[in-house]
Design a protein around this nucleic acid. Structure first.
Length: 878
DNA sequence: GCGACTCT
DNA sequence: AGAGTCGC
């Protein structure tokens, strides 16, 4: 939804973009991004990504991009220290300025560089000038922009993970002052980034308290009696200075005298030129995006400004026609969309279907045609085809449920096929697959043009189908992966309920505790200290306080990881607070704050399950990730209590017990493991008994812990170094420990060797269900890469085997008539756990049925075991 | 991109 | 070992 709609603006807003800020931010966020010849492109990437997003989502008619001018401006005349601690623009950034201007020209975006002032002043000026004609959206994140807020002026920050929208109402609710008082606030509090000192000893709390009753510095000066004594004493010596500070923070609204709304009008982009430009900086994804940008801002302006025909004409002639537009380009490629009635009979044919803007394109033999037929019209036609190849079945079914009418075996999923052939690429999108068609030396693509869509999809389908067959993967697709797609979609659609009230209460407690901790930390580390910055923490701990680093990061810096910090605990009071702070801050920033915002009107969260994400065959979950919700400790428990069943329902949680070790026992045939699982023994205690030559009953908790660590470690191919660190023992001891382990469980030793041998011989390993992972590095001369590949080989058969099993269980559960009859619906998968939502009365029966299905889904050399529970919340169900 | 933290 | 998200 566009911002205009969300905010109830009837006209299309003017967008004022704080270009300089995003330019810098791009440089910091993607600092290492560069063209292959080393030319830096990080800021260009950031800016064009941002603008494309704005153009696509908001379809603006008016947008201005502001940049700071070079050299000092009026502020340095008022106050020589202004921004004195800010360096000149870094060279890699400066080199991107000219390309940026060139790109903006091609995109048709007006650029304004205020003279003797900053970008923010230009924004404030035009916001004030335009707000009575048009609503204004300021695109930026600088806090000083808050002073521009108004009923028709909002602040929008679309970059970063969660976009942020600030309205005047939100601002006054939070601060209790008017936006216009912002500069007065900053003058009192100060701003380190602009080198404004503020009044020493006056922080945001004090300042806000004062400004709520005396909203301006003038009022404060004239009513000093009304200011509490302690604050008055601090402010009095600065009564003159604060006015200077305010002049620096207050944005000007009186510049750019000749700029009118017409100057903010977007011109038509030169798409071809822009593509070439982006290609020349090797920003390929953006170059492709450039091709599908909205191309008629003037027309939209008219439409948005005045839906009535007469008004539209006026607007057009006033603003649209007096502005030079680059000549239109490449609409020779414009598509003619055939309606559903114009499509031929597809029965028995193999076709490819690709969603495009405005409809679909369909391959028909050697040709392709575009259609604007609705999914509901298309589905019956497609259902008669012998094969329908698409970039992603999941995306298509998500697009419209009408496609579920097709029989599963009809689908050919290009992304899925490519994933199963080589599960380690990070991107299985259609564009990449199509590009690979041209890059593959074994493929003759001479009959295709790079722009061919459905035709390319059809070719890819032929190619991938034969490769799948040759790799023995067709069965895996047909029997497991493809049938799973509608299951995943169903889980995503159903979602899981959250208790927003419980979450809010929990969040408030955590926030209070965080504030307390932050105060204590500042007291120990100094006023400007940011406890979220590991760099600052390293400087304080290992620099100022002289503690000895207990480890390094991969980048070589002194580590401040939990592991390193825990070893310093007791040496310094700051360390404990930081550990506690981090724990709570993670909870707040990752779960407590975002989850309520992701809930739908019914209070349910809908994650996305990605079936093409992992190298081992596991699923992943994102937006939000519901597979890493905390579980350990009181806080974890409390967190899971916030996931709840709907009224009259219960949650049933069932998880496989030790599934990976059972898979390992099955594959290796190691007698000790087989016996342990056969007898239902405590596997870690049993391992400890074997290792320490003791009866299982005599094993001490510490010995069991050690055995558990080694059991898990070896699933991951853990070496002696990591084991010695994890157990806190000497390297030699760890080596001896592992040696003993493999001696006593020699079946594992031969199994591991066998895996590595087959990986070397055939170049890949295979899981229970025939899933495979290529491991070319196993032959590497670099011993580190080679051992990495050996560990991956072992981990893949074990972790991947477990992933196969739970996927089978998901199919069984989803398609089980008994569970359906009980009204149970699967809502989550967390690698070895399935979560159902069932009517309250059916929970017991559903739990029993689900665990039976999970146990019975394959017959291994050891039994599968499942623990399950039911409750009102996810926490209780455990 | 990195470092830190969450999960299985 | 495999993931995803946050803040810098």
């Amino acid at each position: 939804m566009t911002l205009a709609k969300r905010l109830g603006f009837e006209q299309s807003p003017v967008f004022l973009v704080d270009g300089t800020a995003f330019f810098y931010r791009g440089y910091h966020a993607f600092g290492d991004l560069s063209r292959s010849d080393g030319f830096p492109t990080s800021a260009l990437f950031m800016i064009f990504r941002l603008l494309f997003k704005l153009l696509k989502e908001q379809e603006p008619s008016h947008l201005v991009f502001f940049l700071d001018g070079r050299g000092p401006n009026f502020r340095s005349k008022i106050y020589s220290n202004y921004k004195a601690n800010r360096d000149a623009m870094p060279e890699p950034l400066a080199r991107q300025v000219e390309p940026l201007r060139q790109g903006l020209r091609l995109l048709g975006v007006p650029v304004i560089v205020p003279e003797d002032a900053e970008a923010d002043d230009g924004i404030a000026t035009l916001a004030a000038r335009f707000r009575d004609i048009r609503p204004v959206v300021i695109v930026g994140a600088d806090k000083d922009l808050k002073q521009c807020l108004d009923d028709r002026v909002v602040l929008y920050d679309p970059s970063g993970k969660a976009e942020k929208l600030t309205t005047k109402a939100a601002f006054t609710a939070e601060c209790g002052i008017e936006p216009a008082s912002w500069p007065d606030l900053q003058a009192l509090v100060g701003d380190t980034s602009d080198n404004i000192p503020g009044v020493p000893g006056v922080g945001p709390k004090t300042a806000l308290a004062i400004l709520r009753t005396l909203p301006t510095l003038e009022a404060v000066r004239d009513n000093l009696d009304a200011v509490p004594v302690s604050a008055r004493k601090k402010i009095e010596p600065f009564l003159e200075a604060v006015f200077t500070y305010r002049a620096l923070t207050r944005l000007r609204t009186d510049i750019l005298p000749d700029t009118a709304l017409a100057d903010a009008l977007l011109a038509k982009p030169d798409t071809a030129g822009l593509r070439a430009f982006l290609e020349s900086y090797e920003l390929r994804t953006l170059a492709r995006e450039a091709a599908v940008l909205p191309t008629d801002p003037a027309g939209k302006a008219a439409q948005a400004a005045a839906p009535k025909a007469a008004g539209a004409a006026t607007q057009l002639s006033l603003f649209g026609n007096d502005r030079p537009c680059p000549p239109p380009v490449e609409p020779g490629a414009a598509r003619d969309f055939v309606p559903a009635t114009g499509l031929p009979d597809l029965s028995g044919r193999a076709v490819a279907l690709v969603p495009v803007a405005g409809g679909f394109t369909l391959s028909l033999g050697p040709a392709e045609c575009a259609t604007d037929a609705a999914p509901a019209e298309l589905a019956p036609l497609l259902a008669t085809a012998s094969r329908v190849a698409v970039p992603s079945v999941k995306a298509l079914l998500a697009l419209d449920p009408a496609f579920e009418a097709l029989p599963l075996p009809t689908w050919f999923d290009l992304g899925l096929a490519a994933y199963l052939l080589n599960p380690e690429q990070r991107n299985y999108g259609f564009e990449r697959l199509r590009d690979s068609l041209f890059a593959d030396p074994a493929v003759d693509a001479s009959d295709l043009s790079p722009a061919d869509t459905a035709k390319a999809a059809a070719r890819l389908a032929d190619l991938l189908a034969s490769r799948l067959e040759a790799a023995g993967l067709s069965d895996l697709v047909a029997r497991l992966e493809l049938p799973l797609v509608p299951v995943l979609l169903s889980m995503e659609r159903i979602g899981i309920g959250i208790d927003t009230a419980a979450l809010a209460a929990f969040g408030a407690e955590v926030a209070t505790e965080l504030a307390r901790l932050e105060g204590a930390i500042r007291e120990l580390a100094g006023e400007g200290f940011n406890p979220r910055s590991s760099r600052q923490l390293g400087e304080v701990l290992y620099g100022r306080m002289g503690l000895k680093p207990r480890g390094k990061t991969p980048g070589g810096a002194a580590s401040t990881s939990q592991e390193a910090l825990e070893r310093l605990a007791g040496e310094n009071p700051l360390v404990d607070r930081i550990l506690e702070f981090r724990k709570l801050e993670k909870l707040r920033s990752t779960y407590l704050d975002p989850l309520p915002r992701l809930a739908d009107a019914a209070g349910r969260i809908h994650t996305t399950f990605n079936n093409l994400a992992t190298a081992t065959g596991r699923l992943s979950s994102s937006n939000p990730n519901l597979q890493n919700i905390p579980i350990r400790g009181t806080l974890g428990r409390r967190m899971r209590e916030c996931f709840v069943a709907a009224a009259g329902k219960k949650l049933v949680a069932a998880d496989y017990s030790q599934i990976e070790l059972r898979v390992l026992a099955h594959l290796s045939g190691e007698p000790a493991l087989l016996a342990a699982f056969e007898q239902g023994a405590d596997i870690h205690a049993r391992t400890a008994a074997i290792l320490f030559d003791k009866a299982e009953a005599d094993i001490r908790p510490d010995e069991r812990r050690q055995a558990k660590t080694i059991n898990f470690g070896l699933l991951y191919g853990m070496g002696p170094q990591k084991l010695s660190r994890d157990l806190g023992i000497k390297l030699d001891a760890a080596k001896a420990f592992i040696e003993k382990y493999f001696e006593r469980l020699s079946g594992l030793s031969t199994f591991y060797q066998g895996i590595v041998d087959t990986a070397k011989a055939q170049g890949f390993v295979t899981t229970l269900a025939g899933r495979r992972r290529l491991l070319p590095e196993i032959h590497s001369a670099n011993s580190q890469l080679a051992s990495q590949a050996r560990r991956q080989a072992i981990n893949t058969v074990v972790q991947g085997g477990a992933a196969d099993i739970i996927k089978m269980a998901m199919l069984a559960a989803h398609n089980d008539p008994e569970l359906a009859g009980l009204g149970a619906a699967m809502v989550l998968q967390v690698h070895d756990e399935l979560l159902l939502e069932t009517p309250e009365a059916a929970a017991q029966a559903a739990g029993e049925r689900l665990s039976a299905l999970m146990c019975g889904v394959v017959a291994l050399a050891v039994p599968l075991a499942v623990d399950w529970g039911a409750g009102q919340t996810w926490g209780q169900a455990h």
